[in-house]
Amino acid sequence: MENENQKLTRSTELLRSFWNIQKNLMRLLQKSAVENGLSVPQYSIMMTIIHHKHMTQKSVGEKTFLPKSTLSQAVDGLVREGLLNRQQVEGNRREIQLSLSEKGVTLIKTIHLQEGGIHQVFQAAIESLTERQYEELLGSHNQITAFLETQAPEQGECSK
């Protein structure tokens, strides 16, 4: 019984640690988004697309876990602001292709360099770790991620 309680305590401590990090990252993300005239969903969309030349709106939705209506509204706002390009996929009128405009890429670069912004604060946190701590932390996160991805059903699937 004692061993089982220790296991539960360890998992609870680790979950609480991830929750605290996620809570603080969301606070910083909201601050960075608002300071740059974006909503959190808009910021998430832009950060998802920046790593690709272009993506379908459906792919962005799958990666960000944003509900379709939130995704559509956020995309509409980004297109209106000239931060995002939107066009139909050739040969499939129902598919929408998204890409960052030059203005969007410039904004993301600006956000990355903003003093007190999420990227700079997170960089400072990383710099407080030794190289070994960083590598071990990254390895542990990747191992936990890989395990969780084998355990949880994909988005949209129902477990019965």
Rank of each mutant, 00 (worst) to 15 (best):
M1G: 13
N5W: 05
Q6H: 07
R10D: 15
T12I: 09
R16S: 14
S17T: 13
S17R: 07
W19G: 03
N20Y: 12
L25V: 13
L25G: 06
R27K: 13
Q30F: 13
S32L: 00
V34F: 14
N36M: 07
G37D: 15
G37V: 11
L38Q: 03
V40L: 13
P41G: 09
Y43E: 06
Y43K: 02
Y43R: 05
Y43M: 12
S44M: 15
M46C: 09
M47L: 11
T48R: 03
I49R: 00
H52D: 05
H52P: 02
H54N: 10
K58Q: 09
L78T: 08
L78H: 06
V79D: 01
V79A: 09
E81S: 09
G82W: 12
L84I: 03
L84E: 00
L84T: 01
L84R: 02
N85H: 07
R86N: 05
R86Q: 13
E90V: 09
R93S: 10
R94V: 05
R94I: 02
S99G: 05
L100H: 06
K103I: 09
V105T: 14
I108W: 00
I108K: 03
H112M: 12
Q114S: 13
E115L: 07
G116E: 15
Q120C: 01
A124S: 12
E127L: 10
L129A: 06
L129S: 03
T130E: 09
T130N: 07
E131I: 05
R132D: 15
G139S: 10
G139P: 00
S140F: 14
T145Y: 09
T145C: 03
F147S: 05
E149K: 14
Q151P: 02
Q155V: 10
G156F: 11
G156Q: 09
